[in-house]
Design a protein around this nucleic acid. Structure first.
Lengths: 135, 135
DNA sequence: ACTTGACCTGGAGCATACTCCATGGTCTAT
DNA sequence: ATAGACCATGGAGTATGCTCCAGGTCAAGT
């Protein structure tokens, strides 16, 4: 599979894909004799993983480390497990923050929907400036 | 309340707080006669909101726009409602991506926990290179 | 063999969001 | 009224994660 096809498949740019490989976020991709990338299934697996991790906002650095450990063989399994659980923690935190912000947004949106009718914002009067207090 | 106290209260640096004000992510903070920031409750409300939105990863740009609209008065209520719902959409998407990545991480972690015992990774044999396929 | 389009590399450039000075003013206690 | 702590501003610098060339190579069709 050419880089162009992979990019279309995953909706990502060629530059990004080459960048991922260059920094070591994915292992070196299979090449033709002429030096042109020819993605195999296993290469695609890494591409998918990289895209998935990045889409959740995990640092490029973490993936680089993971790939590095992977290439060092089975002795790094405990280290990889540690890395994965660390990243999971980070994502759980992140999701918590998002949920908090969603609560706040929902509260504000509810007030704004009323305000859009009346033309003026109603106040809770609890010092909640513009509905910003969250809670 | 001085900038120092606010920073300690919200665990943020003075530079960041001044930056937020400078770019317009929060409205101009109350000052003493000498020009020193003296945060009032209403100022704190905005600080809280800014920190909350940023902690969820919403762009600084969006907050700047929101504050700008807020300062233009009630006529911008519909625009503000729109902005808030747009940002909510973004957060919902983001949470979805995180959940997908968490699923994938959980799957990998489960396999690694077994691998940490046996010393080798077990394979699903479905072309799921290193458990990367997600699904 | 030649054209043409896709691909290659290395390196510079860019957007976002801070972060870090240097220089100078404010304030409080002695 | 002077030290010492804290604060202000403007601007430069940094980290992250791409993104965009320039100049050259590779490969498929004619």
């Amino acid at each position: 599979m050419t880089i162009k096809e992979v990019c279309e498949k995953y909706d990502i740019t060629q530059d990004t894909l080459r960048y991922y490989e260059r920094v070591g976020m994915i292992p070196a991709v299979t090449r033709t004799a002429g030096g042109i990338r020819d993605y195999q299934e296993s290469d695609l697996g890494w591409v998918q993983l990289a895209i998935c991790m990045r889409s959740a906002g995990l640092p490029v650095e973490a993936m680089i480390e993971y790939v590095k450990l992977y290439q060092e063989g089975d002795s790094t399994i405990p280290a990889r497990l540690q890395l994965l659980t660390d990243q999971r923690e980070i994502l759980l935190d992140k999701r918590k923050k998002i949920d908090e912000t969603l609560n706040r947004l929902n509260y504000k949106i509810a007030r704004y929907e009323i305000a859009a009718q009346t033309g003026t914002l109603t106040w809770t009067g609890d010092g909640d400036h513009d509905g910003c207090s969250g809670k």
